[in-house]
């Protein structure tokens, strides 16, 4: 049986772990708030851009832009977004497992894989997957130019017909407590049909031309979509970490409760033994 000192040592060790998980929870909560703000303020731009593209695409020939051209999807590219750091529950496992299923559904050599986030890079490297691009340790200082970089590489591989279709696999932020794994097609870009609310079927005037508008809007849309996925994943990560650290703190609390109970019982037992020894000894002396 564990001695009193052993139990006491365990209690203090669990306590200090609890302090750490609690602090991490607070940090995650603060970061979540910032990530959420960033995500919310980036959404309107992305939405308006999509609206413009859907309006132009509804009126003009889709062959106007190479990134709209649908090819037979022989070779498929995946961009997987994970976090750089762990301790966020099943956040990374969810997304990497899903990506693995997607990739394994293709025949060898038909799917290419790139990864944003250290955890995913580690996961795929360990399992012998080949990564064509790896972006590591960028979430701490996440900026739009990172999305630009990723988008540029995806775009050039699409245009050189190295891949015929590109998906992004990432965690979408639903609320602080829940994420949803998404597999979104980013290339070729599929313009949504325009919604009736804003759309005017009359002829637009283009300045300088529909072609130039699409040339501007479409690469921008790709960058924005990547950017938004990164922000979604970032917010989702902090949410997941907050929840994971909250339950870790709760578990520590329960463990401390149980250990304290055991400690008190053991202490009580020790005292009882001691008393009965004394009583026994006194009894023996008197006899």
């Amino acid at each position: 049986m564990a001695t009193l000192r052993d139990i006491k040592r365990r209690i203090s060790s669990v306590k200090s772990t609890q302090q750490i998980t609690n602090a991490m929870k607070m940090v995650a909560a603060a970061k979540l708030r910032r990530a959420q703000e960033r995500l919310l303020s980036a959404r309107p731009y992305a939405e308006s851009l999509r609206t413009i593209i859907s309006h132009v695409a509804a009126q003009e020939d889709q062959s106007l832009h190479p990134l709209l051209a649908v090819r037979d999807p022989k070779r498929v590219g995946y961009l997987v977004i994970t976090s750089d750091r762990g301790l966020c529950g099943s956040f990374n496992a969810n997304v990497t497992r899903r990506a693995q299923v997607e990739i394994d559904s293709h025949q060898a050599g038909e799917a290419t894989l790139s990864n944003f986030g250290r955890k995913g890079v580690e996961f795929f490297t360990r399992r012998g997957y080949e990564l064509s691009e790896r972006y590591v340790n960028l979430f701490n200082e996440l900026e739009f130019r990172h999305a630009q970089e990723v988008a540029a590489s995806i775009q050039s591989r699409y245009l050189s017909e190295e891949v015929d279709r590109v998906y992004v696999v990432y965690n979408r932020f639903k609320s602080a407590g829940s994420q949803e794994v998404r597999v979104d097609q980013v290339l070729p870009i599929e313009p949504a049909p325009p919604t009736a609310e804003k759309y005017i079927p009359a002829e637009y005037f283009y300045e300088p031309s529909a072609q130039r508008i699409l040339d501007e809007a479409i690469p921008r849309n790709l960058r924005t979509q990547i950017w938004l996925s990164l922000l979604e994943s970032n917010a989702a990560e902090h949410g997941a970490r907050m929840v994971a650290m909250d339950s870790a703190t709760e578990n520590a609390k329960e463990m401390i409760y149980n250990l304290t109970l055991t400690y008190n019982k053991a202490r009580q037992a020790a005292i009882t033994t001691e008393i009965s020894e004394i009583v026994g000894g006194a009894e023996a002396l008197r006899g």
């Binding site: 309006h55 132009v56 637009y204 283009y206 300045e207 508008i213």
Partner: peptide, 14 residues
């Protein structure tokens, strides 16, 4: 440069 006033025709510009 171009100006836009209320009632402008549908227009998209770079």
């Amino acid at each position: 440069y171009f100006g836009v006033f209320p009632g402008h025709t549908p227009y998209i510009s770079v």
